Computed example of a mutant assay.
Amino acid sequence: MVGVLCEGQTEENMVNDFLAPELVEYGICLVPTVLVTRMPAGGPGGKGGVSKWAKIEKDLRKLLAGTHWAAVTTLLDYYGLPLDSPGMADRPVGSAVDRVTHVERRLADHIGHRRFLPHVVLHETESWVFAAAEQLGDWVDDPSLAQELKRQADRAGGPENVNDGPETAPSKRILKLHPRYVKTQDGPVAVVDLGLPALRAVCPHFDRWITNLLDLVPR
């Protein structure tokens, strides 16, 4: 079993609906755990969105204490990752992949556990939805949405290069084009329809993460 520390409900749904069913065929059982990060007044704790690295680290170390895990990984968005997270303050000048890979190395070094396989999504899981533009357009019955998402992804140089600005991050772009978009439902549905091989083919950083997970399976 592989524990997956997820940023929120969208990421949890991506694991349960998409990644777990795909990877179980390879002998990998993914089990998500969601960060509980907010306590609204008069209500239960909220899920998703974390402002401090200490919260992530606490939950990571708690997961890693479980000896039943073959590995523990993360499904955290690079967009909005706490600025006090290891590697964020000294990110190199270069491509988005260079920067996020640097952060992942620093996370691994900081945690210092042989079973920890950090993964930070470029730039959000909605990047995967950009890859599934056609499937999302079919799901919401809006072919023009699919065309525009494809255009923006192509212009950026691929879905993972759609950037992380407050107004231009993948989720912000999708919501601007389709205000009825429901992150926790519509995105996972589209990505499930796209399928793992197709997503790996257009998202190299995601592909490397999947390769690392598959390497856990004895040959």
Rank of each mutant, 00 (worst) to 15 (best):
M1H: 06
E7P: 00
G8T: 06
Q9K: 11
Q9Y: 15
E11Y: 12
N13T: 08
V15E: 01
L23P: 00
I28L: 15
C29V: 11
V31F: 07
V34Y: 05
R38E: 13
P40G: 09
A41Y: 09
G48V: 10
G48A: 11
G49D: 05
V50T: 13
V50N: 01
V50R: 00
K52A: 15
W53I: 05
W53Q: 02
A54D: 14
I56Q: 01
I56V: 13
I56W: 01
L60Q: 02
L60P: 00
R61I: 07
R61F: 11
K62P: 00
L64N: 01
A71Q: 03
T73W: 02
T74Q: 05
L75D: 00
L76D: 03
Y79C: 02
L81Y: 05
P82F: 13
G87M: 07
D90T: 07
D90R: 03
P92T: 10
P92I: 14
P92M: 08
V93Y: 01
S95I: 05
V97K: 01
D98R: 02
R99E: 11
R99K: 11
R99G: 08
T101M: 04
H102F: 15
R105A: 14
R105C: 12
R106K: 13
R106V: 04
R106I: 07
L107I: 07
D109N: 08
R114I: 14
R115E: 12
F116V: 09
H119F: 15
V120M: 06
V121A: 09
L122Y: 04
E124F: 05
E126L: 07
E126R: 01
W128S: 04
V129M: 07
V129E: 04
F130T: 04
A131R: 00
A133Q: 00
L136K: 03
G137F: 09
V140S: 06
V140F: 07
P143L: 12
P143V: 15
S144D: 14
L145A: 06
A146F: 12
A146R: 01
A146K: 04
Q147D: 10
Q147G: 10
K150N: 11
D154C: 06
D154E: 13
G157R: 03
N163Y: 08
D164E: 08
R173C: 13
K176Y: 10
P179T: 13
P179Y: 10
P179F: 12
P179C: 11
R180K: 10
Y181A: 11
T184A: 15
Q185M: 09
Q185T: 15
D186E: 08
G187S: 11
L194P: 01
L196C: 06
A198E: 08
R200M: 15
A201V: 01
C203V: 03
P204A: 10
P204S: 09
R208A: 15
R208M: 09
W209D: 00
N212G: 10
L216Q: 03
V217M: 03
V217H: 02
P218N: 06
R219F: 06
